[in-house]
């Protein structure tokens, strides 16, 4: 089966007064139809910029996609005209944002925000669009949908609004949904509901999901594949079980150590990742994680490791010592 989304060697740069920031620096990954892929990384690692690059919504200037291909269902999105791109956005790729409180327009009713997308992409008339909106609201678990359609965003709670956002993203039956930190702004109990909802809907409707998050707990439970980003590059990629059970990059290992675990004996204290993420304008020729890495050796300062197979099939790591560090205890 060919991949639904095939990102190849994507480079996105921001030209600022102080220099060029390579926010996404040669990232490649694929998403199969119906698959859930997580992109994990800390703030500033380029995960959101990478997602916005897929929809070609990088503010230009200062941002630009300088190199690479984004093949979606066989077409290269980088080369599409603005009109064709508009048909892809919302029509074939839906997006769910981090902030449900501000992602809905306060002056439009819930119904309008859904029917507007239908009118744009399907040329649906008002009655058809309204019927579909009711259907979508029931689909995302909102009771009394006819009444909700006439309400404004401020009349709904955060969790409900995120459900609406999911409904909006699903409106035109897209093949792919990109969710940028969809649960970060929600209460923990609501987070679980929203994630369950997204998992169930993507399975039922066979929609692929790219979920961008810094929350490893989200990844462990819902993603089939995990891509770990650091300083604009993928540092580790593979099936979720492999990346969790047998991490092959010191950054991933450090991330896993910094998460409190209920299924392991309680640690005296959490072990956060030391140091700060690097300044993307001042990267040298070596590995970007080197200054924070406890496994760094001389070669790490002179050349950058490429993403190469490690461990089980499909598991890749960008570390020179990927095979040696496998033996190192994760919960050090």
């Amino acid at each position: 089966m060919s991949a639904l989304l095939d990102v190849r060697n994507l480079h996105t740069e921001f030209r600022t007064g102080a220099g060029v920031v390579r926010a996404v620096d040669g990232v490649s990954y694929t998403v199969d139809p119906g698959e859930t892929v997580a992109i994990v990384g800390e703030s500033g690692s380029g995960k959101s910029v990478g997602a916005m690059s897929i929809l070609r919504l990088i503010p230009d200037p200062p941002g630009r996609i300088t190199e690479g291909q984004i093949l979606f269902a066989g077409r290269d999105l980088v080369g599409l005209s603005p009109d064709e791109m508009r048909k892809v956005r919302g029509g074939e790729i839906g997006m769910v944002f981090q902030e449900p409180m501000t992602s809905l327009n306060p002056v439009l009713t819930i119904g309008r925000q859904i029917t507007e997308t239908l009118e744009q992409h399907r040329g649906a008339d008002r009655a058809t669009a309204d019927r579909r909106a009711v259907e979508l609201l029931s689909l995302v678990g909102i009771s009394d949908p006819e009444r909700r359609l006439r309400q404004y965003p401020h009349q709904l709670s955060g969790g409900m609004r995120q459900r609406i956002m999911i409904a909006v993203a699903l409106t035109c039956e897209p093949k792919l949904i990109i969710a940028d930190e969809p649960t970060t702004a929600l209460d923990v109990t609501i987070q679980a509901q929203i994630l369950e909802l997204m998992a169930e809907l993507t399975r039922r409707l066979n929609v692929a999901l790219v979920i961008i998050t810094h929350n490893l707990g989200v990844v462990a439970r819902y993603a089939q594949r995990v891509n770990v980003m650091y300083a604009g590059r993928l540092v580790e990629s593979g099936p979720a079980a492999a990346v969790y059970g047998d991490p092959r990059h010191p950054y991933t290992m450090a991330l896993l150590r910094s998460v409190p675990r209920l299924d392991k004996p309680r640690q005296a204290r959490l072990d956060p990742v030391d140091g700060q993420p690097p300044d993307l304008m001042r990267l040298d020729g070596g590995c970007a994680f080197r200054p924070r890495c406890r496994f760094a050796i001389a070669v790490c300062a002179t050349s950058r490791p490429a993403l190469e197979p490690a461990g089980t099939a499909g598991h890749m790591s960008a570390c020179f010592r990927r095979d040696e560090i496998a033996a190192a205890p994760v919960a050090a």
Binding site: G90, M95, T102, L104, L108, Q120
Partner: peptide, 26 residues
């Protein structure tokens, strides 16, 4: 800068529609 304008763009709306329907009323 508010996300709902980005959200409108991810829904594939054109510039005129975003300006007149999404920004002007606000």
């Amino acid at each position: 800068e508010v996300p709902y304008i980005d959200a409108a763009r991810t829904s594939g709306f054109g510039h005129a529609r975003i300006i007149l329907r999404h920004m002007v009323p606000n």
